[in-house]
Computed example of a mutant assay.
Amino acid sequence: MLTAVLTVLAAGTLVGGLATAAVAAGGVRCDPGKQFCVIEVEQPGNPGQPSQPGDSGTGTRACVVSSTGASVPCSHDQFGWFNDGDDCYWKKLEHQPPGTDVIWGGHFPEGAVYSVACAATHPDGVDGWEWAPTDPPGYGGTTMTPAQLAQQALAQLALTGPAIRMTIEGDEHGLVGLPVWLWTEVGPTTWGPNSATAAVPGLSVTATAQARLIEWDMGDGRTETCKNPGTPYYTGGVTSPTCQHIYEQSSAGQPNEAFPVTATTTWDVTWTGGGASGALTVTRQSAASVRIGEMQVLITQE
């Protein structure tokens, strides 16, 4: 990411009700109407990823502002095309700034400079210019791509973190040196498999998710990685056959006298539809806590 310090002099202007501020690489904005705009680049930015082959399809594209859920036109005569990545409208400048302009951030002649209108979709949005290495998602089209529809199918899966279960429940105390069994209740949203289909006229995409592993951060500075949902505790069991943790110290002195436990599930999601396919990796997290005490041995003399 580009880190920049910006110095601007002179007065700015508004065009069509939009603050036509320019965006230097890395998100620093400066008004093209200013007479001076100085930028000091501390670290070069990384260009964005180009669109992948196979990202094509038919069907009516739905443009929704993620922060509000409001539906908006996918294109606007003045503002350009709705960007699914930042919920703003993007339009490539018909007359590109000279290569010496700081808006290029040293990238000229790669990519292009766009006018970016965010005020149209965000109450506190800022409008301006921005350099980008490629056209943003959704630029130049009103059709939904299979990859975009796959994101909708992923949302429908409603994947969650583990439904954390341990041999220690509620206010119970475990003991230093004794195994704590770790597992999750298995269901479509906690371990999988889970499938969902999203569709628009002329196109449907099905996404299927399966959990791959759970990483348990046990709060004592150590973690356990279990490539399974774990085994529920059964009466008489001592050592878990699949997933457990042994505490080497008590939780005394910890906040609330308990170790915080965080369990993160890694999900593998595959999707197919519209003649295309792809794969995604997502994570979901849950939290709990556990109290661990030390075994006290009482010796009596008769």
Rank of each mutant, 00 (worst) to 15 (best):
80 G>C: 08
51 S>P: 12
243 C>S: 08
90 W>E: 11
163 A>G: 13
271 W>D: 03
108 F>T: 01
17 G>W: 05
73 P>A: 04
116 V>C: 06
287 A>S: 15
147 A>W: 01
78 Q>G: 08
136 P>F: 12
120 A>V: 03
301 Q>D: 08
59 G>Q: 07
151 Q>V: 10
277 S>V: 00
101 D>Q: 03
272 T>V: 08
139 Y>L: 09
293 G>F: 02
180 V>C: 09
47 P>I: 11
171 D>H: 04
201 P>T: 12
209 A>D: 10
53 P>T: 07
103 I>S: 02
25 A>M: 03
241 P>T: 07
119 A>E: 07
257 E>F: 06
300 T>I: 07
92 K>A: 14
281 T>K: 13
186 V>T: 15
144 M>H: 03
17 G>P: 05
28 V>I: 11
64 V>N: 09
122 H>V: 02
218 M>R: 11
125 G>K: 04
251 S>P: 10
49 Q>K: 14
256 N>G: 04
242 T>F: 04
162 P>Q: 08
139 Y>M: 10
166 M>D: 08
34 K>Y: 03
101 D>M: 05
202 G>R: 07
36 F>Y: 10
291 R>V: 04
136 P>E: 12
199 A>W: 04
296 Q>G: 01
273 G>D: 03
159 L>K: 03
187 G>L: 02
258 A>L: 05
182 L>T: 10
104 W>E: 00
193 P>S: 06
94 E>W: 00
234 Y>P: 00
210 Q>V: 13
74 C>A: 10
157 L>P: 12
184 T>Y: 05
181 W>Q: 06
10 A>L: 07
216 W>G: 08
202 G>P: 13
159 L>S: 04
143 T>Q: 15
117 A>Y: 09
167 T>A: 06
85 G>S: 15
